[in-house]
């Protein structure tokens, strides 16, 4: 008998598969937005592991996403035409394999950035990860093999509802399961007080590295999904603004809250559609929302109970 959490995960995967199978005659615009929402859930939940639960401050999530996006797109665009793949083989074998490789490479990048810089805390760590994100962007802009500043075009549209929501369910499960164990409570302890955590026998460096590796692994997979959803990659799509967007989802949902962050990811991604006509004003609106939130609800917008009686 499986634990309830795993049954729930399995049910989500089956549901995603069934809905995906019947998505053939759904509105393509709606599908596009829905898949964008799923990718956001992956990004926000994985960043929540690093910034929320483990108390680190990464501003480089878009960079990790880019590593996964370009890796997986390169794999499908170069290996795809070879070996006479069938459409099924492309979408159900090559594509998930490319996502996995993209995720693993991104996790490796997470280790490479994380291991030397995890002695840093708070703002210092934020600056290092921000620098990493910018380096990735500039490197991609200057490597002709991946299209340089023109971007990578003609990425096949393998992303469907099953892959996005399947990944989203898996991400949420992994983060939830990691936290809900005696071992996983260590992440929260590291976030609360590193000195005390070490004194209780916790290897705080290892915890932080696991958080970074797992977080960037899923960011990389999200990148692969994004690449095969949009069909076109441009380095500027993975800049500072994208990282900030994900950070905002985590803060708005409530750092270290599972459901809150998922809700925030869904709402903030969906709400972008009607806001699109505002163009650049969108970011200003974002900033305003953040400021108001920090003043009115520092614990996060979707943290239960939604309203608590003031005790005076």
């Amino acid at each position: 008998m499986l634990p309830r959490s795993q049954i729930l995960l399995l049910a989500s995967l089956i549901l995603a598969g069934v809905v995906s199978a019947f998505s053939g005659n759904m509105d393509t615009y709606f599908l596009d937005v829905a898949m964008g929402v799923g990718i956001s859930v992956v990004l926000a939940s994985s960043l929540n592991l690093i910034n929320g639960f483990t108390g680190q401050f990464s501003l480089g999530h878009a960079g990790f996403m880019a590593v996964g996006a370009y890796t997986s797109a390169m794999i499908t665009t170069t290996l795809g035409p070879k070996f006479g793949w069938s459409q099924l083989g492309l979408q159900w074998v090559l594509f998930p394999a490319s996502l996995l490789v993209g995720g693993l490479l991104s996790a490796l990048a997470g280790l490479a950035v994380g291991a030397p810089s995890l002695r840093l805390k708070g703002d210092y760590l934020a600056i290092v990860t921000l620098g990493f994100g910018e380096i990735i962007k500039v490197v991609l802009q200057n490597v002709e093999a991946v299209g340089g500043a023109r971007g990578l075009v003609a990425v096949p549209g393998h992303t469907n509802l099953f892959w996005t929501f399947g990944t989203a369910a898996l991400t949420v499960y992994v983060v939830w399961a990691l936290m809900n164990s005696t071992y996983g409570r260590g992440f929260l302890a590291v976030a609360d007080d590193e000195v005390a955590a070490e004194a209780m026998g916790l290897n705080t460096t290892r915890y932080k590295i696991i958080a970074f590796a797992v977080g960037s692994f899923f960011a990389g997979i999200a990148g692969g999904l994004y690449a095969h959803l949009k069909g076109y990659l441009n380095p500027t799509g993975f800049d500072f603004n994208k990282s900030i967007e994900i950070v905002i989802m985590v803060i708005l949902g409530g750092m270290g809250k599972h459901v809150g962050v998922i809700v925030a990811a869904v709402v903030l991604t969906a709400v972008q559609e009607p806001l699109r006509q505002l163009g650049d004003w969108r970011m200003i609106l974002y900033a305003l929302i953040l400021i108001l939130l920090m003043i009115l609800r520092p614990q996060g917008l979707f943290v239960w109970p939604l309203w608590t009686k003031k005790t005076t």
Binding site: T182, Y183, L188, D192, D193, M200, G201
Partner: peptide, 23 residues
């Protein structure tokens, strides 16, 4: 220096870390 946001139970539970067999 407790872990302020963790529950009383979790504060103690997390300190069993050294004797954990699971990872």
């Amino acid at each position: 220096r407790l872990f302020p946001s963790l529950s009383v139970f979790d504060n103690v539970r997390v300190a069993f870390h050294l004797h954990l067999k699971h990872a």
